[in-house]
């Protein structure tokens, strides 16, 4: 559709005037957008952090494969290659017994150096491969395969509790995805109803436009502009509120239950802003389009 510049100006002008004239209705619509987007945002941030914590757990989880002392350096390397060839192995790093001793010393901390005295000359520890997986759900299987490799003395794997925690997180994630979809529908419904009131208040105007020969799109655009601006304003306010709320909440959580790192708001800002603004304007435009349809049939 080719549109003249002055017509676009007219649409924008009418769209903005409409917002000003129906200010009470507009406030109600903006409020709905804000509420819907904030609830939406909470779920987005919640599941983002669940994912983040999930990757942290995944990251920390490792299998230690201790190598028999009788193995030569070449054999140790061969074992490493075999482990790397296994399915689901993301990373396989050799920790020599000297490094292991060093780590142990650090873990024990100052004042306890005596316990490890003399071990440098006769190190009782073993070389080990530290294996990280692409998906820790397969820990047991991979651990089993590693232990069947020749030259592996002992395999120590992740605890089962972590596995269960991850399962719970998966359930929560699916649940919040469902709620997110439901909320999107509710938001479109509420906004289309609110804009329906605005359209109803201006049905006389629409009727006049019809009989002086306005095309459907000419009538529709100002309302769509209005809906999109309402959505945009709502999105910006929701973004600011969500930002502050989120920053305070994460600060509180990391001070009081700082088990895991949480995402900082500036890390997720771009994504959330993009979702809020595109969702807000889409919901507004969609709501307008739905609610004006009926009045165009004259």
């Amino acid at each position: 559709m080719v549109m003249k510049i002055r017509t676009i100006k007219y649409f924008l002008g009418e769209g903005f005037t409409g917002i000003w004239k129906n200010s009470l209705m507009t406030l109600a619509s903006i409020g709905t957008v804000i509420a819907a987007l904030i609830i939406f945002g909470i779920f987005i941030l919640f599941s983002t952090n669940l994912n983040y914590i999930g990757t942290q757990i995944q990251d920390e989880q490792e299998i230690r494969a201790f190598i028999d002392e009788s193995m030569t350096a070449e054999q140790v390397q061969e074992i490493g290659r075999q482990i790397e060839d296994l399915a689901f192995v993301r990373e396989c790093r050799l920790e020599t017994k000297e490094q292991a001793l060093e780590n142990l010393r650090e873990d024990l901390g100052e004042g306890n150096e005596r316990i490890l005295e003399g071990l440098d000359e006769d190190n009782p520890l073993r070389d080990a491969y530290i294996v990280k997986l692409k998906d820790i759900a397969y820990t047991r299987e991979v651990a089993g395969e590693i232990s069947s490799i020749d030259g592996i003395a002992v395999v120590r794997e992740a605890e089962e509790a972590v596995d269960k925690l991850l399962n719970i997180m998966e359930v929560i994630r699916m649940f919040s995805l469902g709620i997110m979809i439901l909320l999107a529908f509710i938001a479109v419904f509420i906004i289309s109803n609110t804009i329906k009131l605005a359209v109803f208040a201006r049905r006389k105007e629409i009727n006049i436009m019809k009989f002086v020969g306005a095309t459907d799109w000419f009538i529709r655009w100002p309302f769509i502009v209005e809906g999109m601006v309402i959505g945009l304003i709502g999105a910006v306010i929701a973004l600011v509120l969500t930002g502050y709320g989120y920053s305070y909440t994460t600060e509180y959580i990391s001070q009081n239950l700082g088990m895991f790192r949480l995402r900082q708001f500036d890390e997720v800002f771009e994504g959330v802003a993009l979702i809020f603004i595109s969702l807000g304007t889409t919901i507004g435009a969609l709501g307008s389009a739905i609610s004006i349809r009926k009045y165009l049939r004259v």
Partner: peptide, 30 residues
């Protein structure tokens, strides 16, 4: 349909003017 209606001027018993627009704006609107 809009082009048919542009070729027809219409006047009604109840005037059907836009109350919050001036006389000039009401006419310019068409």
């Amino acid at each position: 349909i809009p082009y048919l209606r542009r070729s027809i001027g219409t006047v009604f018993q109840d005037f059907r003017l836009l109350p919050n627009k001036t006389v000039y704006e009401n006419v310019a609107f068409a």
